[in-house]
């Protein structure tokens, strides 16, 4: 069956909306990768699992509170807050326990440890929450809007707005506060930053804690968007957010945001149109191909990414 070009064009606004929503989530997660990389040159592969734990904690807390008779909106809000706090604690501990003892060791060592921590967190989640898919309670009323031929739900609107808010907050923090200035200085020259009185350990902890808070918010977003969660959900999401960070130029905050949104759009448009361009040989379930094709292309042709500084050892 052939779909007309007209129909494809009609679909376009819808794919853009879907891409923006997914991209906002990638951007929030990508920021966590990029902040840690920018400051200590480490790719924290366990970051995707922090997102997963954020989702699962939110499900449990919201479920318990709702069962105790709390209105689901307020229960969801409490779930979000507790999920943020738990993820912050996990991010902090991760750095303290797994990465700090390896400071100054060859770069490959913390990288392998990061993969190890990812496995540990995944298995921990499996033990705590089981192997089954869990349903995420609907936190927001199901309201639909239409704009320029695209339909979207309240959840989608909230996801995009909330990530925009979080990202603006982060930019303000990094560029307008003393902590932010210390973070940037540490990223550029940790030795001299400590001569100025900056406690490098604190700055690194702050990067982990802030990144993990963003991850928790992203986790709750993913949960309420797809309404399911699973102990393995963090892996592919983490890889894609990492791809987004690389696309934007790892170590660069604006890069992570733009890279995230762009990756979301590429995926949505790719998945939406792959059927048409391959004569229905490949369908939209090939969605994941796009993210990793992007990763390969960026690494081959512009490893420093869109906003990255010259390809160096560190951003």
């Amino acid at each position: 069956m052939d779909i007309s070009l007209h129909q494809l064009l009609q679909q376009f606004p819808q794919q853009v909306v879907n891409g923006l929503v997914q991209g906002s989530i990638y951007a929030l997660v990508a920021l966590g990768y990029t902040m840690v990389y920018g400051i200590m040159g480490l790719i924290n592969f366990a970051h995707g699992e922090v997102v997963m734990i954020g989702t699962l904690v939110a499900i449990t807390v919201t479920g318990l509170l709702a069962a105790a008779g709390m209105p689901v909106g307020i229960a969801g809000l409490c779930g979000l807050v507790i999920s943020i706090l738990s993820c912050m604690a996990i991010g902090w501990s991760l750095e303290r326990v797994a990465y700090r003892p390896l400071r100054g060791s060859p770069r490959l060592t913390p990288l392998i440890t990061a993969i190890g921590m990812s496995i540990v967190l995944q298995n921990l989640a499996m033990i705590l929450w089981g192997r089954n898919y869990m349903t995420f309670p609907p936190l927001l009323p199901k309201v639909n809007f239409e704009f320029a031929g695209a339909y979207f739900t309240l959840v989608q609107v909230v996801i995009v707005l909330l990530s925009a808010l979080m990202m603006s907050g982060l930019v303000l923090l990094v560029y307008r506060t003393k902590l932010g200035m210390a973070m940037r200085a540490t990223a550029q020259n940790p030795e001299v930053a400590s001569l100025m009185g900056v406690n490098i350990n604190r700055v690194i902890s702050a990067a982990f804690v802030i990144g993990s808070a963003l991850a928790a918010v992203a986790g709750v977003m993913v949960g309420s968007y797809y309404e399911v969660a699973h102990y393995q959900m963090g892996f592919v999401l983490g890889l894609k957010a990492f791809t987004a960070a690389v696309l934007g130029g790892i170590g660069n905050l604006v890069g992570a945001m733009v890279g995230g949104i762009l990756l979301g759009l590429i995926e949505a448009l790719g998945a939406g149109y792959i059927g048409y361009f391959t004569g229905d040989f490949l369908g939209s379930h090939y969605q994941d191909i796009f993210a990793f094709a992007v990763l390969i292309v960026v690494l081959m042709f512009k490893p420093s990414g869109l906003f990255g500084e010259k390809t160096g050892d560190r951003a």
Binding site: M181, R184, Q188, N189, S194, L195, M196, G197, N199
Partner: peptide, 27 residues
């Protein structure tokens, strides 16, 4: 600790200057 040296009142101008290249002069 290294970051406490400046608290004691010792400021080092490091070899090779060590300015933060992507911070402004004022920063």
């Amino acid at each position: 600790a290294p970051h406490d040296i400046i608290r004691k009142g010792i400021a080092l101008v490091p070899e090779g200057r060590g300015v933060f290249p992507r911070l402004t002069v004022l920063e």
